[in-house]
């Protein structure tokens, strides 16, 4: 009887953790994650604040924000002091989450379908998907660059919307700011912080 009780308790916890986690297969991972996000974003019983909090939570768990912050810094990441790099990463994470929630609430009423999966290397798989807006506007092709170095925990590193990489756009935007300010990262951090105050 006691063993049965323990099994029940374990099963309960196992199910609880499974409710939060997505598949480790990159294709299923993206489908489950985006379907979950769309269903939450289109849930009229949730406030915008609750939706934003949910998006932030899944982004923190499933997007490789640290790698993204280093990528967007370009070659400068190699020559930057650890301390400055850390404050840049902190500012970048806040900036990323704010811009992500603002972007995703704009695309809430859409249908989502994963169309293909292309393993580029042991570390990367590109998941191809299509978003069909309910408004009847043309469908949008979105590719997801999934980092699979740890096969038990796939992480999103980039979104390629109709062939346009959001990570690369961000990288080139930051490069322009850095180039016109003698590669001074503190100015970039200041701009990120100004954005957060808006």
């Amino acid at each position: 009887m006691r063993t049965l009780k323990i099994i029940f308790i374990l099963l309960f916890f196992f199910n609880q953790t499974n409710l939060q986690a997505y598949s480790t297969n990159p294709k299923e991972f993206i489908f489950e994650l985006v379907s979950d996000a769309i269903s939450k974003l289109s849930d009229k019983s949730l406030t915008n604040e609750e939706k934003a909090k949910f998006i932030e939570k899944i982004a923190l768990e499933n997007v490789d924000i640290k790698a993204l912050s280093l990528y967007t810094l370009g070659e400068l990441r190699k020559s930057t002091e650890e301390e400055i790099l850390l404050s840049y990463q902190t500012a970048f994470e806040k900036y990323f989450l704010k811009s992500l929630t603002s972007r995703l609430t704009d695309y809430s009423s859409s249908k989502f379908e994963v169309t293909n999966s292309d393993q580029k290397s042991a570390n990367y798989t590109i998941i191809q998907s299509v978003v069909s807006p309910d408004s009847g506007d043309p469908e949008i092709k979105i590719d997801w660059r999934v980092y699979t170095k740890n096969p038990d925990k796939p992480l999103i590193r980039d979104l390629i919307v109709e062939g346009l990489s959001l990570a690369r756009t961000q990288k080139e935007e930051f490069a322009s700011i850095l180039n016109s300010n003698n590669n001074d990262i503190s100015i970039l951090i200041k701009k990120l912080e100004e954005f957060l105050k808006k």
Partner: peptide, 20 residues
Amino acid sequence: SLEKNSLDLYSSYKSIYLQD
């Protein structure tokens, strides 16, 4: 959305145009 989230809109347009 791009205008709302860009730190340097000019560079974002440039990057998107060149990629496209």
